[in-house]
Structure formats: C-alpha cells, structure tokens
C-alpha cells in the first residue's frame, strides 16, 4: 500500500505518543493529500526544530536558546526554583502562568522497579545551582505517586544542608470538585494539608 516511503512515514508517526497505527495512517493520509499546506511546512518545522532546539544547561528545559528563554528572563524571581519531573510538567506550569520563578527538570523519579537510580537524575546540576547561591526556596512539584513521593523524600535530604526553604505542592480537593467523589487517600491528604482560612 503506497510504497516503502508511505509505510515508513506511517511507522514513524505511529511511534508518537497518543498515536497508534490507525491514527498514524489517518495523519499520513492527510499530510500526503495536502503536500503544499501540510506536509512541506511540517517537514520544514521538524528540520528547523531538530537544528535549533537543545536542552538548557541550567534547568533542563527544551528551547532554541541556551540558557533557555525562562532562565534568561530578567523579570523572573531567581530566588525560587521549582523542581519538576519532566519538561512536560514545566510546560504545564508555564501554561497555567502561576509561577514566576525558575525551574529545574529532574528527568524522572527514582524507581527501583524501573531501574532509575540517583545518578540517573539531574541532581548534581541542581546542587551546583544551590552552591552558587541566591536561591532561598525550592518547591518540589513531583507526582503524587509512590515513586514521586519517595523521590521528594530523598531530594529533601540532599537539599537540607543548604538551609533553603523546601516546600511541596499541595494535594487534595481539586478546584471545582465535590468532596463525596474523592477517594480516601486524597481526602486524607486534603485534611492533612488544611490551612487556616
């Protein structure tokens, strides 16, 4: 069907997250039917991105500039660093537009079962940033999974010698959510994390 070029395109698309063989075929068909408006601009954009985008040496973000746009922005609060698991989490926080400090991408969480060990995480660059001074608070924004919680626990021990404030993002009742549908664990976390009004 369509020759090896088409098959290769479909096979590559099918490996992208959120796409399977069926949706990859649909996407490939749409691209091939409209080469001028879809296929060539996409090819150019892919080329350009592959050439220009790199990992920020300071925070681990992906950007065409290094240090990245966020690290270079003079308006951001350089005293607060938010530690996230991956670039996707960083982008999610940026989309929300609620955090004005700097980030640090850990590149995963510790996982004994998946074989992710302390040396696999970008911890040294974070410690180097703390040694360089100027940071007063580290926010741990890791997932509320067993591995996320264990990583936060472990990282807290590594960071405590620097005497900076260490905080964690809150867990509990979602905005716009009702209490009666929450599971026990979430409710317990919400109660533990309660604050004075």
């Amino acid at each position: 069907m369509g020759g090896p070029e088409v098959e290769r395109l479909i096979a590559l698309l099918a490996r992208l997250p959120g796409l399977g063989p069926r949706s990859a075929r649909r996407a490939a068909l749409r691209l091939l039917q409209q080469p001028q408006t879809r296929l060539l601009p996409l090819a150019a954009a892919l080329n350009e991105a592959a050439r220009a985008v790199r990992t920020c040496q300071l925070c681990g973000n992906l950007d065409s500039a290094d240090p990245c746009t966020l690290c270079a922005d003079p308006r951001r609060d350089r005293g607060i660093v938010c530690v996230v698991e991956g670039v996707g989490d960083l982008w999610a926080l940026e989309r929300a537009g609620v955090f004005r400090g700097l980030y640090h991408v850990l590149g995963g969480t510790l996982s004994a079962l998946a074989g992710t060990r302390p040396e696999d995480l970008a911890t040294e660059p974070l410690l180097a940033r703390l040694r360089a001074g100027g940071i007063v608070e580290v926010i741990l924004a890791l997932g509320a999974t067993v591995d996320g919680a264990a990583t936060a626990h472990w990282l807290t021990e590594r960071l405590s010698p620097f005497g900076v404030a260490i905080s964690r993002v809150g867990q509990g009742v979602p905005i716009g959510g009702a209490l009666d549908v929450l599971d026990d664990g979430t409710l317990a976390a919400a109660l533990r994390g309660r604050r004075p009004f």
């Binding site: 302390p118 067993v146 990583t151 626990h153």
Partner: peptide, 11 residues
Amino acid sequence: DAAWLAGLEDA
C-alpha cells in the same frame, strides 16, 4: 541509598 529507602518506607 539510605534516604531513598527512607522515602519508600515513608510511603
């Protein structure tokens, strides 16, 4: 790593 173990034991 003792701190990692402590994190898992906490969980």
